[in-house]
Design a protein around this nucleic acid. Structure first.
Lengths: 257, 257
DNA sequence: GTACTATCTTCGTCACGCCTAACATTGTTG
DNA sequence: CAACAATGTTAGGCGTGACGAAGATAGTAC
């Protein structure tokens, strides 16, 4: 009815909790809600009043609590967001169930609609596409396990070590040779093949995460071409051109903007 | 130094904004910040005071605003989260730049660390793995474009139409035949092949999103085996066993709990 | 140096969301 | 049916984060 502006994150949580409790035990009591959400009983009263005002719950003091039809619809929407995120985390990113649940709980309140739909599509796509599937996800898992020293799965290893590709895909450029980080243009991405050089400089580069297999992107090149800004594993770093030239890479694709 | 507990979402935003402004113009003024964040000038004062209290900005009334080293470190961390999310949205989910930016802005404050790292790994993995790459992402894009009527990419089409797979992957079970939704067990997932039946029932199923190619999961089966709860495209729905038997599917994988 | 303007700060207000402590209701049990 | 425990509600407080209005400050214009 009223449709009065968006609910706050915590009101969505209350609605979600009521829905789940009602699904289990038919009706919800104030205590159940405070237990489930780990908040004080009196906070629940306040939330219920706010929800009742918006016509989302049937609530009278000392009475049982139920969702209205509208409230049920809103709750289902919140739960859809929650489950979509959780499923993505578990099925695609191989996050453990508890972390996925916690993360979904926080993110469900802020994720834009259009991004949510994409998450859902993506899970389906990964299951449907013959190039992906569960065995591909397993490859991702072992890729993640190998992260500290950047162990890669066998398929990727062959790439990293620079052997010729068995399957030259269209639209996907792979250059062999002795290209270094210093040769890249802005926006280009490459996988790291080898860090040459020795001693202090070599060690410093390794410490920055410059290990074989890692993906590096060129973010910015200073006017004089000298300090070059890279990004790898989410971190920004800046290298002198001389240092960059010590790092052999293989270009992943043509830079797009 | 102080390290006093986590920053609120909005304080992180302020820090991020100051960092970006400082990167552009060397120093930041109160006005720049309020403009960038679209908040009232007085709110900026309050935020700056809070940040100065934590030792994250150098701030004195009427003076120029700069980040302390600690503040810079925190800002870089926030920006790393922001960019990791944005990059994932753009590079993997093919979200448009603006939506990605907005979504990242909201989600950066709540995403758990471990999930963030997975997002970053995943982007790298997609670029590195020979089974994925940019052309695979393009397939996802066209998959999404076809969503209303569930047009699939050519590779997937062959799957959906039940033709034998060209590449039988290990660990990936694909059953042909005339399995229906009614035959699935809890936790199993399947792609929809065809909806049989006619008239009202058929129409109702189509309206629920039961179109070829969609992924369906069995969520729950009532004690008597009759109403069966499914999930498709994030939505829960409940079908009578009779209705479920009208839907031909192909199982995607063995149910894992 | 006074006047003006752009900029910044202070102050009072509001809405959230949670808390504790005190009070009210309900239902159960001797 | 009274007394008690369990459950729910109210009232008041605290911290955050935003706003607008009004006052302070600095720089420029004359």
């Amino acid at each position: 009815m009223s449709e009065s502006l968006a609910l706050s994150a915590s009101l969505e949580d209350y609605l979600e909790a009521i829905f789940h409790i009602a699904a289990d035990k038919k009706v919800a009591r104030s205590k159940d809600i405070s237990n489930r959400l780990g908040v004080n009983n009196s906070s629940v009263t306040g939330a219920l009043r706010a929800l009742a005002e918006r016509g989302l719950v049937n609530y009278a003091p000392y009475d049982l609590i139920t969702l209205t039809d509208e409230g049920k619809a809103v709750a289902e929407d919140v739960i859809r967001r929650h489950e979509a995120l959780r499923d993505f985390f578990v099925r695609v990113l191989s996050i453990d169930a508890q972390t996925a649940e916690e993360g979904a709980c926080k993110m469900e309140h802020v994720i834009p609609q259009s991004i949510l739909e994409r998450f859902i599509e993506f899970v389906d796509f990964v299951e449907l596409c013959p190039r992906a599937g569960t065995d591909w996800i397993q490859k991702f898992e072992s890729f993640c396990k190998g992260v500290p020293d950047r162990q890669l799965c066998s398929e990727c290893i062959t790439l990293v070590e620079g052997k010729p590709e068995s399957k030259p895909d269209e639209g996907r450029e792979r250059q062999a040779g002795t290209i270094t980080l210093g040769d890249l243009k802005i926006g280009q991405r490459a996988r790291l093949v080898k860090v040459r050089g020795q001693g202090e400089v070599h060690k410093r580069l390794i410490d920055m995460g410059m290990v074989p297999g890692v993906v590096i992107a060129v973010e910015r090149i200073a006017p004089l071409g000298d300090p070059i800004d890279f990004k790898l594993r989410g971190y920004h770093l800046s290298l002198r051109k001389e240092e960059a030239k010590l790092v052999t890479v293989a270009v992943l694709e043509e830079g797009r903007v």
